[in-house]
């Protein structure tokens, strides 16, 4: 092991204790996931008798083939993807523009507006949701993609992040371009935007994940099953009285619904880690 942070020195006993602690935490982390996977591979009948059967064969892929045949999961995944991507792209565009404006250009009211924005950071989504629901009702926006996407664009976090980032970027490059007579938008577009890629990645990941996991707003806005996002769709198929598709099927649905984003995560893990890392600096 080549450690970056110092670790050598202390006694081996302490190291073992720490390792054991880490192993325990990893187990706590992984066990629920494995349990879900096992349950999804059992027939509903077996599970109804006892979930303990999940620890031993026979296993089956029946639940998964049932999903492939008849499930609404695909629609939910599509909706979640459309909404999350649109919110992410929208936030990136709005935040970069505004971040550049706040960081580099002087205009009347800039300081006051930025302070208002900082206050905006502390406004929880949940505290405006009732009023927002009323507003969207009046505008006829419920059960549309617009209705799901627009609220996600309002969070000031992105503007704050991009402003900080642009402020920390050295001015020399821009000054050269200014002397060449480039317009402000051109400078932003050609020079600062490419430089801000790491911050964009960070913001994009944050935004995508939080939109993907949003629950309350789609629950009251996307009430038409055609517009269900993944969170709402999975909720609608749970906790139904009397007969349901069965536990194994539900668990398979959970695995199936999580698979795409987990795969994306595994592929982009390195960038996500790097991206999230940059947010802290």
């Amino acid at each position: 092991m080549t450690l970056r942070a110092p670790s050598a020195g202390a006694g081996a006993g302490r190291n073992w204790a720490l390792l054991a602690l880490l192993a325990l935490a990893s187990l706590a982390m992984a066990a629920p996931l494995l349990w879900t996977l096992l349950l999804s591979l059992k027939s509903n009948g077996d599970l109804l008798r006892s979930t303990r059967s999940a620890f031993s064969p026979p296993y089956t892929l029946q639940n998964y083939s049932d999903i492939l045949g008849h499930s609404a999961v695909f629609g939910w995944l599509l909706n979640s993807t459309i909404v999350s991507l649109a919110v992410t792209l929208g936030v990136l565009a709005l935040s970069s523009l505004a971040g550049y404006g706040f960081a580099r250009l002087r205009f009347p009211g800039r300081a006051v507006l930025f302070i208002v924005l900082l206050f905006g950071l502390a406004i929880p989504e949940q505290s405006v949701i009732i009023a927002r629901h009323q507003m969207f009702s009046a505008l006829n926006l419920h059960n549309t993609y617009r209705g799901l996407i627009l609220p996600g664009l309002a969070a000031p976090f992105g503007v704050f992040l991009m402003t900080q980032y642009f402020r920390a970027t050295p001015r020399e490059l821009e000054e050269a371009a200014t002397l060449d007579g480039a317009s402000r938008f051109k400078i932003f577009w050609r020079i600062l935007l490419p430089l801000s890629l790491p911050a964009q990645a960070t913001l994009g990941i944050f935004t995508f994940l939080s939109t993907w996991n949003d629950y309350w707003w789609p629950l009251i806005s996307a009430t038409d099953s055609d517009m269900y996002t993944l969170t709402v769709g999975v909720a609608s198929s749970q906790m139904n009285f009397a007969q349901t598709n069965g536990l194994g099927y539900l668990m398979a649905q959970a695995v199936f619904a999580s698979a795409p984003i987990l795969i994306v995560y595994v592929i982009f893990q390195r960038y996500i880690v790097a991206g999230v890392s940059r947010a802290a600096t």
Binding site: T231, Q238, I261, Y265
Partner: peptide, 9 residues
């Protein structure tokens, strides 16, 4: 980090 990408439901 993997659990963070799962939906609340």
């Amino acid at each position: 980090f993997s659990s963070s990408v799962l939906s609340v439901t």
